[in-house]
Structures are given as C-alpha cells and as structure tokens.
Design a protein around this nucleic acid. Structure first.
Lengths: 221, 221
DNA sequence: GTCGCATTCAAACGAATGTTTGAAACGTAT
DNA sequence: ATACGTTTCAAACATTCGTTTGAATGCGAC
C-alpha cells in the first residue's frame, strides 16, 4: 500500500496549504465578513491546523493583505489592458465612453461571476470591505486603485472635455457605487426585489451597468 | 449647593441613559462597524455602566434594531411624503423623474449631513450594513424598505412607461448603490480623490446624484 | 421615615478570539 | 541511515467578548 496516498487521503499537495487557506478564507470572508470569521473556522474549512495561518502569514491581517493582492492586482491589470486596447483602437481620437466604462466594469463583473475556484465571491468581499473600518484594508485598496483611477479619469476627461474635474470625480464615485452594489446584490439575491435575479448573467449585467453609467456621466451639468 | 447639579456634573438626565447609549453606539458603529464595537466601548463612551445595555435593551442585537428603527423610519416617512407631494403637484400626470429621485435621495443626504446629534453618521452606518452579513440586520432593512421600494417603482414606471420592470429594478439598484457609496465617501474623505471634498454641501450632492441617476434611468434600453 | 420600583454599579461568568509554544512528522539532500 | 530545514500538530497562552448576578443607589408615594 502507498502510505502517502491511502493511509492519509487528505492533504493531496502538502505544499498547497497556503493556497487552501487563502481559498477558504476568501469564501468565508465573503459570506460572513472579515471580522466575522475566526482563524479556527478558516483552518477547519481548509483542513489545516489552527497554527497554520500564523505560521504561513504571521497574522490574520497579513492573510487579508495577501488575499486582496492576489485578486485585485489581476483585475486592475486587466482594466488597464482593456483601456489601452480601447484607446489604441481609437487611433489618436478619444476612446468611446462606453468602451472606457466597459474596461472598468467588465473585469470586476467577470471575476465576480467566475465559478471556478473561490474567486467567485471575492468581489462581494471587496464591496463589503469598501465600507469596512479597517485602516490597513483601506490603505491597501487605495494603493491598488490609485493608478487605475488616474488613467480612467484622464481617458474620460478626453472624451468628455466639457465635464469639470469635480463633477467627473463625483460621477465616477457614483459609477463605482453602482458597480459594487450590483456585485453585492449578485452575492445576496435575498436583497433583490422579487423576480429580479431571473436570468442573471454577466454580459447582461455589464451591458446594463455600462449604459446606466454612460448616461449618468453624459448628463448635462 | 445643589447636590444633583454640582456634586455629580455627569448624568444630567438620569432617565436619558438609553438615549445616550443609542447616540454613542451610533457614532461608534459608524466608525468601526457593528461587530467592531464592544459593549464596553459603548458604555464607556456613554458614561454608563457595562450592564446598562443589557438592562435597557436586553442584548446588543436589540440595541441595533432600535437604533435602525429610530433613524430609518423617519427617513422613509419623509421619502414617501416628498413623493406624495411630487405626485400631488403633478395633478394626475406622472410626477417628473427628477422630483421622484430627489424624494428618494434628499432625506438620506440631509440625514447624513445633519450636524446636530449623532445622527450625522447614521447613513454611513447604514451603507456599511447593506453589505454586512448579519441576517437580522438584513431582514430589518428589508422590512423598512419594502413599502418604499414599491411606491417608488410604481412612480417611476408611470413616468418611464417604456422601461421594462427588470431593467427598472436593476437601475434602481444602481441608483441606490450610487447614493450609498456617495454617503460613505462623505464619511470617509480619505477615500476621495484629492481635492474632491472641497465645498462639500448637501444641496450640491443632491443635485449631482439626481442628475446622474435621472440620466441613468433614462438611458435607452 | 420607609416602602417599592427603577436604575446603576462592580464583579464575575463561560465562551470565543488571535497568538504562541515545543514537540512530532515530513521530505530531501548528504 | 542520518541529519536538517520545513511544515504540521495538539495544547495552552492571555485577552476580549456578551451576558448575568446580586448588592447598592436613587427617588417618588404613602
């Protein structure tokens, strides 16, 4: 008998404990909030020992940081890539507003709808953390978005040159709020009005968000 | 010497402990989240004994319920009153979209900017709780908003009759997300882009929110 | 005064939290 | 086989949490 495979069916990849912890924490955090999940719950769900988190991450806070970086970095890279593509396709002209907004919205929605792995609920967690008090998380999010916000602000100012900067900032905040609230609803259909979550697919949501926010941004001052 | 006034300057109205607890809890909850505030912190801030909360409310959860009801009920009453006024002024015609949206937005923004008492930060707390996991809070919010949502949906369907119900629900969710995200930003200027919180007054915010969401709701399907 | 009721108080309760510890088990290179 | 660095484990650490308790206090009515 193969001792490593049959006597202990659990722990298929011994070196993957760190990833299992991240996945379990992501799922549980999205469901119950960061403060609402204990290290014991995480390690139990990840089939790991209680001390594993402090061994691999040092502290719970560091796990949170690594969790956010793992998901936020790819999303924002994709946002910038889509924006680059939109601007390159415009050939010197300002990129179309709808394409800019889709570049901002699509990566978040797609990540939110990704069924594979635990990444599906991350955007729900992210939306929750926007309103959380933890200063470390706040700084972390801010650092991840600083560059993205600058690029998108500039792109939109190019296509809507008559929009005052102040007005643009507020409207982008409104758009962000709409996006994150929508992703939140996707994770909590119980908050939706009846019958709203019929045929809930990402492309439809993206289309709705783009047309709503584009109209809002184009509103007369 | 007046013993009740000079020997113990604290506790001016002995019967107001319950209110002091609610005010302190509201402020602390808005700053650190519900789960992030202990009964000890609340009672310390309210200059009351630790057991005061369990004596006056029975449990922490009941304090939260009473806290929400105290603020949410007047806001939603004002919303319905403004909507009634808008529809009455329209004299049988559908009420103007901008007036309907202002009826929804103004009470929340004004409550959020109210400097007197601790009510100023409640809307920040409310926005936070939209994404919180607590099922009791979730049901509580839902029950407070059920009637309001129905009335506003109907009013908007009257002025935008060509808007499919599904589309309307999503766009109202987007509008709600924009509103609550904006109120969240007002409570956390650190999340704003630089220079955005210059001259932050409620009327300007209301105007911006109304024009943004009105344009979004009118967007072509 | 003194009774009765509402409120406050200090102290303690059990349970749960994040973290630490030191030994055991593991895989791998020598 | 032996030794070594890495990883896992059970157990305990000190805090903190929400809640409970029972005595003390305040205060108006009789």
């Amino acid at each position: 008998m193969n001792a490593t495979r049959e006597s202990k069916p659990r722990r298929p990849h011994p070196a993957a404990t760190k990833e299992r912890l991240l996945d379990a924490a992501e799922r549980l955090f999205a469901e119950h909030g960061i403060e609402g999940v204990s290290l014991r719950a995480i390690t139990r769900a990840a089939d790991a020992n209680l001390a594993a988190i402090n061994y691999h991450f040092g502290a719970k806070q560091e796990l949170v940081v690594e969790l956010f970086s793992r998901r936020l970095a790819p999303i924002n890279l994709k946002r910038l890539a889509l924006l680059d593509a939109a601007e390159q396709q415009a050939e010197g002209q300002p990129a179309p507003l709808e394409l800019i907004l889709e570049a901002m919205i699509r990566p978040a929605v797609e990540q939110s709808f990704l069924c594979a792995s635990g990444s599906r609920r991350f955007m729900q967690l992210f939306g929750r953390c926007l309103s959380e008090p933890d200063e470390a998380v706040e700084r972390l999010i801010h650092s991840h978005f600083e560059k993205v916000i600058q690029r998108f602000d500039a792109a939109i100012l190019r296509v809507l040159p008559r929009l005052p900067a102040q007005e643009l900032h507020w409207r982008m905040s409104f758009a962000g709020g709409a996006l994150h609230h929508a992703l939140l609803l996707c994770g909590k259909p119980s908050l939706m009005p009846a019958g709203m979550h019929r045929r809930l697919n990402p492309e439809e949501l993206i289309r709705r968000l783009v047309s709503f926010t584009a109209a809002g941004l184009r509103a007369p001052v």
